[in-house]
Design a protein around this nucleic acid. Structure first.
Lengths: 207, 207
DNA sequence: ACCTGAACACCGTTCAAGT
DNA sequence: ACCTGAACACCGTTCAAGT
């Protein structure tokens, strides 16, 4: 068992780690020490492997972050979808926000490579995009207007996540400035208010 | 003239640079080589001074970026304001976007320290905030709703700027992928559509 | 009174060499 | 077949020393 494989005839040194182990360790590292501590070197140190071994499983640092986000989007549960298409747009937008909100640093990566995370077929997170677009059309949008709505919702979400990440970072530096968690809740509420206004303003539009 | 001052009796070595020179050099550096090349060390090298001299005029790197943004907001011309308060909200939001859009990397800083750039009295950019809030109230919003609208507009703008910065960076890496400038125009248009929908959805709301 | 080099504690990434 | 140390080319920031 230690050196012979039962099924596939493997040769040479066995791998010392795997993509899954790297992603898990990265999640731990972020949870334990904060997002800014996630560096390739630190991650390797935490895993007890050589720095350069990371590069056997990940193209570069950005690739690591993209895989992490995709992982989170796939892991996040799909919400129950209401029948009303208008409400469906809102529910899906909030679900996407929640899925990515656990990693507020995601905004940086999403901005750089939004398509890499959501736009490509075969990715875990694609259903969010499809559902928003098709629901908006079912609610009476032209395809073009649906696209505009999606992009605007996307901007709104990226902005909210970025600001959230910023205030979290600031709070980490200057502790005990205000209350603790209710700020995140407030942000979530303002986001929902914004999403609702935007959907209303888009769908009630007549020209 | 070279060593004696006419007015205030100065002593010791004359300053080798100034805050204004540093900001100008930083703008040049960004224009010439791109935002990611703006480092404290490079900036000093460009100015032909010691790296550490920068720190006599700027608290740290973030402070440099904040000063740069404030500078840009102050330098940007104020638009003509229409009488209709609803349209005024839109015009000011677009003006703020344009003022910051010349430095799309601003989003990162704005998220970290939005208050430092806009929220504090005495800053050049404060009028944007005041004008949006008071116009929204004049258009019939409660103060609370005006605040929500402003925050949502802020998210929308930060998100749009961040995505714009990301696609600009990506285009710099992979040149000649599509057309050149019309993408920015398209983004501007989508932003305006979003702003209009948001304002409409907020102001037409009745509850 | 003002400026600076050297140093500290880090980064991401590559590549020849080791097991 | 898989892993790695050393090296390269950088960062931001501090502080004792220089002019």
């Amino acid at each position: 068992m230690t050196s012979g494989a039962a099924n596939a005839p493997r040769r040479g040194r066995p791998p010392v780690t795997s993509r899954a182990e790297i992603l898990t360790a990265a999640r731990r590292l972020i949870a334990d020490e904060g997002w800014e501590k996630l560096t390739v070197r630190r991650l390797a140190r935490v895993l007890g492997i050589g720095t350069t071994t990371i590069y056997l499983h990940v193209r570069d640092r950005d690739d690591l972050l993209i895989q992490l986000i995709n992982d989170a989007a796939g892991r996040s549960p799909r919400p129950d979808l209401p029948d009303d298409p208008r409400e469906r747009v809102i529910v899906v937008a909030l679900a996407l926000h929640d899925a990515l909100g656990e990693m507020p640093w995601a905004a940086d990566v999403l901005a750089v490579d939004g398509e890499a995370c959501l736009g490509r077929p075969g990715e875990d997170a694609l259903w969010y995009v499809d559902e928003i677009l098709s629901s908006a059309e079912e609610a009476g949008c032209t395809p073009e207007r649906s696209g505009d709505l999606f992009v605007t919702l996307w901007f709104l979400m990226v902005g909210e996540l970025l600001v959230q990440a910023g205030s979290a970072r600031r709070k980490a530096k200057t502790p005990a400035l205000d209350s603790e968690q209710n700020n995140a809740l407030l942000d979530r509420d303002v986001f929902e208010v914004g999403v609702r206004s935007l959907v209303q303003g888009t769908l009630d539009h007549t020209d």
